[in-house]
C-alpha cells in the first residue's frame, strides 16, 4: 500500500450523533493496517475528550472508552484545538489523559489526506 499520511478530524460532540464513534473506528482501522492516522478534535469535537463520561440512553455505548484505548494502537496524543476548548469554558485538566493542543493549520498542511467526522 502506498503511504499517505492521514488526518482524522472530529468536529461533533459524543452521544448526540454517531460521528465521534465513526471517526474513531476509521482511525482504528488505519492503525490496524499499520498506519495510525493523526487524530484531531476541533469545535464541538473537543467535548468528546471530557473526563467522566458514561453510557447513554438505552445503554448506548459512548466513545470515551474507545478514546482511552487508542494509545494501545499508537494513536496518540489526542490533539485538540485550544480555541475550541476555551470557547466552551473548559481547561485541559477537565479532559481525559493524553490530550495535547494542536496547531491546526500546520497539521492540515502536513497531511496528504484529511477525513472529517
Amino acid at each position: 500500500m502506498s503511504s499517505k499520511s492521514i488526518l482524522v478530524i472530529v468536529r461533533h460532540p459524543p452521544h448526540g450523533s454517531s460521528w465521534v464513534r465513526e471517526g474513531l473506528e476509521t482511525a482504528l482501522v488505519g492503525a490496524a493496517l499499520g498506519q495510525p492516522p493523526t487524530l484531531l478534535f476541533s469545535g464541538d469535537g473537543v467535548l468528546a475528550l471530557l473526563a467522566g463520561q458514561q453510557r447513554g440512553a438505552l445503554g448506548q455505548k459512548g466513545s470515551a472508552a474507545m478514546l482511552e484505548g487508542l494509545s494501545l494502537y499508537d494513536i496518540e496524543p489526542l490533539w485538540y484545538d485550544r480555541y475550541s476548548l476555551e470557547a466552551r469554558g473548559l481547561t485541559l485538566d477537565q479532559l481525559m489523559s493524553g490530550c495535547q493542543p494542536a496547531d491546526i493549520a500546520g497539521m492540515i498542511a502536513r497531511h496528504d489526506v484529511v477525513m472529517s467526522f
Binding site: R11, G43, A109
Partner: peptide, 12 residues
C-alpha cells in the same frame, strides 16, 4: 454553524 470561525485557525 461555527465552521467559518474555526476556519480562521485552520487555513494557511
Amino acid at each position: 454553524a461555527s465552521a467559518l470561525q474555526e476556519l480562521v485557525s485552520a487555513v494557511s
